[in-house]
Design a protein around this nucleic acid. Structure first.
Lengths: 139, 139
DNA sequence: AGAAATTTGTCCGTATGTATC
DNA sequence: AGATACATACGGACAAATTTC
């Protein structure tokens, strides 16, 4: 068999099928995907091609892979309820005692009161993109 | 040659060397990198390994690749122009293992690699006004 | 315009290393 | 310690896009 990739390459096709299975709930969020060896047999593709497909899903944020363990479907493609809320950053504020590193920067004693403001930014899928923590003196 | 990847895998080492060459200006911005076949000979690595290294640079946004044409160094990653302005925020970036709280937010296991970017903002007198720490997933 | 050469893209098979169970 | 599963690396082959002659 040569390597004809008319239209879409095989790894793309396989990635799309896996994506469909995940989004359809056939592979529930948090569950392990079948191991690469099984997928290789199922889709009649080499392991390298399967890995390429999984890499595409990983880059799309649909799965996470852990060495020696497996590849998990991402918890929550979701939404529903709340129309525009998903892109809105969540912010929370609290008072904390200064750790050594922050105390040094602010030139206060360790344990001095600081205000920590934490903002969590997520993408449309609800996956955390970044966490921003801002520290100021309490006063 | 077997496959010993003690410490760092070969593709990582190669990627780092290429990155150094780019950032040192040895490969000027916008210029073509040597073709994969040449890199393969230069670094005594298979083409697949070279492609892995380039993929890492591409993901890092340092290069762009075009089918049939080649891989270009990206115009300007960052830095230069340091006007010694004391009120300018100082930013520093490093990789850290995820603490429990951040691991939970990012949905990774404790100890996973995170990028922490810390910016220290001072007033005219040099007193720290605020510290902003931004966390993202490494890679 | 067309053919050849160049260069990246895809795919396979195999072997071995490393992490987890 | 053994089995399972992902990671790295090699080599070869052919496809597809671009450039060159």
């Amino acid at each position: 068999m040569p390597t004809p990739h008319y239209g879409q390459p095989r790894y793309r096709v396989i990635a799309d099928k896996l994506r469909a299975n995940i989004e359809a709930g056939l592979i529930p969020p948090g569950a392990l995907l079948p191991p690469e060896s099984t997928l290789s047999a199922d889709y009649r593709a080499s392991r390298g091609t399967i890995r390429q497909a999984i890499a595409a899903l990983r880059q799309a944020g649909l799965v996470v892979t852990e060495h020696g363990r497996g590849t998990y479907a991402r918890p929550r493609p979701l939404e529903q309820t709340r129309p525009a809320d998903t892109t809105e950053p969540e912010t929370r504020q609290r008072q904390i005692p200064a750790e050594a590193d922050l105390a040094m920067l602010f030139e206060v004693r360790v344990g001095a009161a600081l205000i920590e403001q934490e903002t969590v930014m997520r993408n449309d899928g609800g996956v955390v993109r970044a966490v921003v923590r801002t520290y100021r003196l309490a006063d």
